[in-house]
Amino acid sequence: MTTTPPGTAAVNTLLAVRRARDMIDRCYAEPVDLDRIAREAGYSRYHLVRAFRAAYGETPGRFLTRRRVERAQDLLRSVNVTVTEVCHLVGFSSLGSFSSLFTELVGMSPSEFQRSAHENAPPPIPGCYVLMWSAPMTTNAARRSPGQKPDAPTD
């Protein structure tokens, strides 16, 4: 018998799925598959999907898709880049699946969204600027050693 306070197991599960969720938020622009997400939590794929859905109300895959589409909306709204560039910047490899998932979640296609966003005002930020700034995301991920947990104790 251990003397851990009540609810410790539940809290530990939540900490594990949060590691997975934070990894998605950090690395959505990279090729992220379920194996990598589950590894971040230290769970099997099956256990991760169940625990993640119990905590956040959707599967990790769905959360990743929503994060990518939300980032795509932000870029389409504020940056002068093409839909194809946005598709790759937020981590989709196929323009077809990007367009259909975007349309499903937003209610209009990426190009329709971009047109309507730019009706009132031109995008404030030149695309080249964002393309330059999107680079550090990858270098930062590469800097982190493979086995290192991002929210392991930092001391």
């Binding site: 938020d25 504020s78 964002v130 700034w133 995301m137 930062n140 930092t154 001391d155």
Partner: peptide
């Protein structure tokens, strides 16, 4: 110093923003 960032600095309409825990 090991602060865990969820989002690196990015241009936003209101300035430059990063997110950390």
């Amino acid at each position: 110093r090991g602060v865990e960032f969820l989002q690196e600095p990015a241009e936003r309409p209101y300035g430059v923003e990063a997110v950390f825990r």
